[in-house]
Design a protein around this nucleic acid. Structure first.
Lengths: 222, 222
DNA sequence: CCAAAAGTGTTGTTTATACACCCATGT
DNA sequence: ACATGGGTGTATAAACAACACTTTTGG
């Protein structure tokens, strides 16, 4: 008991919904809670905000500390502050959602040995706090943003083929897309540039590799 | 100094950007600060969140206490937590934006005699804290939402004519719209129903009055 | 030469835009 | 009777959706 104020203050935390496409599914990264409340339950990576720490910095720090993941695309999602959402007392959580390519990502459990795992969005375990609600909100937002932004490109590695990009869209939208219309569409955005390289990938014609003109930048379309 | 914690905690506040259409302009409601910091400067209505108070409740309460305004449409906008945004110390602000019809709205200054006034978005005074940034974000969001939702209907009184609705759109979008296309468009949303009443309003043909099928509900279109 | 994914245009349909006149009322 | 804003339909252009075959590689 060392920090004292004239008025009671809520604690403030950040939580991150990190999406990635893995094994042909839209998955998200969860940590197993080591301590009460909800010890043993799965939760979003997150934690309390440092007193001199920006909210976004806090989200990225907690993500790295708990899962080892860095270099993601991050956007603020929503702030949940319902009294009673945390049994320890009043905790206001600023939720972010993040996207990362599936390649070359090494997750690691935090020092305190909490488990870290990817879970398919379709098949989430019971989750701590109101984290399921936050996940649903993040998913809704992701689907909405597909329509009017280039956000899905944040799932792609530095170089990728148009078929791979189409597959990502199909997984998120849960529907098949027409190959020719899809290619017309994404090329018309003029966010992609052809590289000089091709990917040979099995016993068929190699595919042209593309890259983002401005990686990390999400543009609005239409 | 009475409330003590093991770790330092930021203060949490809510702020509201309340939009309305008045005098043919998009305006927003500001309060003049009575106390330091920024005493005498204009600011968004807002204040600290009660320890057992929901965030949305806090936003509505502060709005009513400081301006007397109730019954608005409210949506969460963004949470700003940059250290240093408030000279008093770490304050995290959850910003909301709100819309209200222009008719029958009575604003009143709070008991502590802070001034309350509408200000045209085009002509804002210098503002306290990072409130100008928040206002810009709210305006961007409002314009974006015009495109894919019925949010603008929240500016309308219970009954209104299609011409009045068109005027509201034109003010926000800062462009003239075609009367026939506009009417086709809004009627196709099938959110409006004709009333049996007409408004006689000057020396010309009276206009059909419409009302929202679900007042307070904002629907997505397209 | 066969299998497998890569790559490429055209046509029909739907949606959005542009545009001009008559109607009901008050003065 | 005239001035004022209310109310209505059609034709063109643009965007979107449907659709099938040839190419390049590995085995």
């Amino acid at each position: 008991m060392r920090y004292c104020y004239d008025h009671p203050r809520p604690a403030v935390a950040t939580d991150v919904v990190l999406f990635s496409i893995r094994e042909g599914m839209l998955m998200l990264l969860l940590v197993k809670r080591a301590h009460e409340p909800f010890a043993g339950a799965w939760a979003l990576p997150g934690g309390f905000v440092g007193i001199d720490e920006d909210l976004e910095t806090s989200a990225l720090r907690e993500l790295e500390e708990e899962t080892g993941v860095t270099g993601v695309y991050l956007e603020q999602l929503h702030t949940s502050g319902e009294p009673g959402r945390d049994p320890r007392g009043r905790v206001i959580s600023v939720a972010y959602y993040a996207l990362t390519p599936s390649d070359g990502l090494h997750i690691r459990a935090a020092s305190d040995a909490k488990a870290v795992a990817w879970s398919a969005l379709e098949d989430l375990p019971p989750m701590a706090f109101d984290h399921e609600k936050i996940v649903n909100m993040a998913h809704q937002r992701l689907v909405a943003k597909l329509d009017y932004s280039t956000i899905a490109f944040q799932f792609m590695p530095q170089m990728f083929t148009l078929s791979e990009l189409q597959t990502v869209y199909q997984i998120i939208l849960r529907e098949e897309l027409d190959k020719r219309n899809f290619r017309k569409g994404v090329l018309a955005m003029s966010c992609l540039e052809r590289t000089t390289e091709k990917r040979r990938n099995g016993k068929h014609r190699p595919a042209q590799l593309y890259r983002l003109k401005s990686p990390g930048r999400v543009e609005f379309i239409k």
